[in-house]
Amino acid sequence: MKRFKAITVSIISASLMFSLAGCGGTSAEPDAAGTADTAETAEESSDSVYRTLDEIVEDGTINIGVFSDKNPFGYVDENGDYQGYDVYFANRIAEDMGVDVNFVSTEAANRIEYLQTGKVDLILANFTVTPERAEEVDFALPYMNVALGVVSPDDKVIESLDDWNPDDEMIVISGTTAETYLVENYPDITLQKYDSYATAKNALENGNGAAWANDNTEVIAFSLQNEGYTVGIPSLGSQDTIAPAVSKGNDTLLNWINDEIVSLGEENFFHTDYEETLADTYGLDYEESLVVEGGKTTDAE
């Protein structure tokens, strides 16, 4: 029995050492199993992870990462076809580039990885431009605005936060940009914080707060789906933008996309896109505040 114990202990300690050492080289194991299939894909491994514009055109297919479950920006309809504001733009890019489009279903959490590994050429997945992300990928010109919005009941519409009644409270969802923004810029407004969309919605409907601040697309959709509420402030605070993104350093593709966005601006392409895909959800009233045409953001608030 003693001998058995000694062996067990030595095995455990040895395997611990091995597994610690193994952490660095984890990919070697899967690699061994995959060798049979690496031959067919090896040709794609050049010096850079991405494909240049010429390589994409030559290949005849562009891989574009989009959301497949974010209606109305990128989703799949009942016939299995990709639809939405981002997808409409993606199809136009492929058309003008003269290539077919292969849509890749991405998640919010893996969009950067897809570009860093060159598994897609372009991401059009409602990608908000932030300084942190710009270090990992290259953003092209923007094609949509996102900002905060404030929705309030019809009988007491709040159109400005400057004359806020000190007795009123503002509903926010914890951890959202709306909360951060209000704490920084309007420290005098008392916040009522909720954990989820559903509880915040209930709070507004029960009159617990005077208004609800959230992403403007969310509050606009809410006011259109629920009667008796108006978005008094459709665009609050710093405007963020949504833009296409390519792998870091893929300048040929980036420049082509930028030129494309500018030239599409001449035909008001993104307004048509909005009317075709977003108008059902957000109505035509918000077209000007949401659409960015020709890559030019106007700070008209």
Binding site: D31, T41, E44, N110, T117, G118
Partner: peptide, 15 residues
């Protein structure tokens, strides 16, 4: 994630 993304990042193998 290791097999799908890191095999490309480390070895350029696009699975």
């Amino acid at each position: 994630f290791i097999v799908f993304f890191d095999s490309t990042k480390l070895f350029g193998i696009n699975l």
